[in-house]
């Protein structure tokens, strides 16, 4: 396996609120992704540490989702390496790859629950495919996950089309957590939720992170989330990670986009509120 040659990004030395292990769980090096003539990610480097909640911000259409999807292997990359759990995703065989995919969970922006299955069946889907479990165990696990994400047990028998937006997000999170993954990718988890719901969801992510020892990779635009739950923030602009560190580091950053982002009217309102 190739040892990453680039120096670790400077901001890793930034102070943090919680003690987080130095173990790198996702390591992206020299990543180039583009569609046709357009380069979306340009020699991007990023590290995610075990047990942290990383908030990922960037301009709309700037490639946040593309980076997430590239790590997940949904978008092909032109060059560079992506290592997850210390394994280079390019060198993995099919079986190793699917074993690795079981160790991460993904919450898509619209939930992506299977619309023909009930919530319970949605959660049991990955269980059924990968583990040999008794029906009782599967039911209990499904109900445990449903309650862990703060839903009532009677949601279990509902179809996704019968749920509200917030419930869909929670149910989708329950499915992402079905196999007790080590990493969870959240794509704008609080978008489309009311501020109270979004706050609850932030808290939920924090609680689950502590309960299950998760590493969370969260693409978000929610300044409240960035302030309350994220241990570390990485900002993407011009296809590169332009800054990373705690919220305090971000507030002090001089890059014009970051200043506009963290010192804009909405940011000031959030600041004033705390």
């Amino acid at each position: 396996m190739d040892v990453p040659t680039l120096p670790t990004p400077a901001a890793t030395a930034a102070p943090r609120r919680r003690q987080i292990s130095r173990e790198v769980i996702i390591s992206v090096r020299d990543l180039v992704v583009g569609f046709g003539e357009r380069i979306i990610l340009d020699h991007l480097a990023l590290d995610v540490y075990r047990g942290e909640i990383l908030g990922f911000v960037g301009t709309s259409g700037g490639g946040k989702s593309v980076l997430t999807r590239t790590i997940l292997g949904l978008v092909p990359k032109r060059s560079g390496t992506v290592e997850v759990f210390g394994q280079d995703l390019d060198t993995l065989g099919e079986r190793e790859r699917s074993a690795l995919e079981r160790r991460w969970g993904v919450l898509f922006q619209q939930g992506a629950l299977f619309s023909s299955l009930t919530v319970k069946q949605n959660i049991q889907f990955p269980l059924r495919e990968t583990l040999r479990l008794s029906q009782r165990m599967m039911d209990e696990i499904a109900f445990a996950k449903i309650e862990m994400v703060g839903l009532k047990p009677d949601v279990a028998e509902k179809l996704p089309s019968e749920l509200s937006g917030g419930m869909i997000k929670r149910a989708a999170l329950a499915r992402a957590l079905a196999l007790d993954p080590e990493i969870v990718f959240l794509d704008e988890p609080t978008s489309g939720l009311d501020p109270i719901g979004a706050g609850d969801f932030d808290e939920l992510i924090r609680t689950l992170q502590q309960t299950l020892g998760l590493t969370v990779f969260m693409v978000t635009h929610d300044l409240d989330s960035l302030h309350t739950v994220c241990d570390r923030i990485a900002a993407l602009a011009d296809g590169k990670v332009i800054a990373q560190g705690t919220i305090e580091t971000m507030m002090e950053a001089q890059h014009p986009w970051l200043r506009a982002y963290f010192h804009g009217a909405r940011a000031r309102a959030v600041q004033a509120a705390r």
Binding site: E140, F143, A144, E147, M148, P153, E157
Partner: peptide
């Protein structure tokens, strides 16, 4: 967390 779950009867 697990102690709290499964106290309510599951829906039909």
């Amino acid at each position: 967390e697990m102690t709290r779950t499964g106290r309510e009867p599951p829906p039909p």
